[in-house]
Computed example of a mutant assay.
Amino acid sequence: MRVRDDMTFPSDEYERRIEQLRQRMQQRLLDAVVITDPENLMYLTDYQTTGYSFFQALVVPLESEPFMITRQM
């Protein structure tokens, strides 16, 4: 993960949240999850958005780096 200095929580908290998600994914035999709810995006990544006016998603693979899908700015 690229470490950011503008997050409202420490990077180790980010790692903890992603790891907890991955543990639940493993229990459910999921290879990846797609997060689209703005509140969940905020909780997992600290990415603040105006929300529901355009499609955006966080893809969290079980074993590789999470990545965002969003519109081009």
Rank of each mutant, 00 (worst) to 15 (best):
M1Y: 11
R2A: 03
D5F: 07
D5M: 09
D6T: 08
T8W: 10
S11D: 15
S11T: 14
S11L: 12
D12V: 06
Y14C: 04
Y14D: 04
E15R: 13
E15D: 09
R16S: 12
I18D: 07
E19N: 11
E19I: 05
E19A: 15
E19F: 07
Q20L: 15
L21E: 08
L21W: 04
R22K: 12
Q23V: 10
R24S: 14
R24W: 10
R24C: 06
M25C: 03
Q26V: 01
Q26L: 09
Q27D: 11
Q27H: 09
R28G: 01
L29H: 15
L29R: 15
L29G: 14
L30V: 07
A32S: 15
V33Q: 08
V33M: 11
V34G: 10
T36P: 00
T36L: 08
D37A: 08
E39W: 08
N40E: 15
N40K: 15
M42R: 12
Y43P: 00
T45R: 01
D46K: 03
D46C: 12
Q48D: 10
Q48A: 11
T49V: 14
T49M: 12
T50K: 12
T50S: 12
G51Y: 02
G51M: 02
S53D: 08
S53R: 02
F54E: 07
F54D: 02
F55Q: 11
F55E: 11
Q56R: 13
Q56C: 02
A57F: 02
L58Y: 03
L58I: 06
L58C: 05
V59K: 10
V59G: 05
V60W: 07
V60D: 11
V60S: 09
P61D: 03
P61K: 01
L62E: 10
E63L: 03
E63T: 13
P66R: 00
P66F: 06
F67G: 04
M68V: 06
M68W: 01
M68I: 12
M68F: 14
I69Q: 10
I69C: 04
I69E: 03
R71H: 06
Q72T: 13
M73L: 10
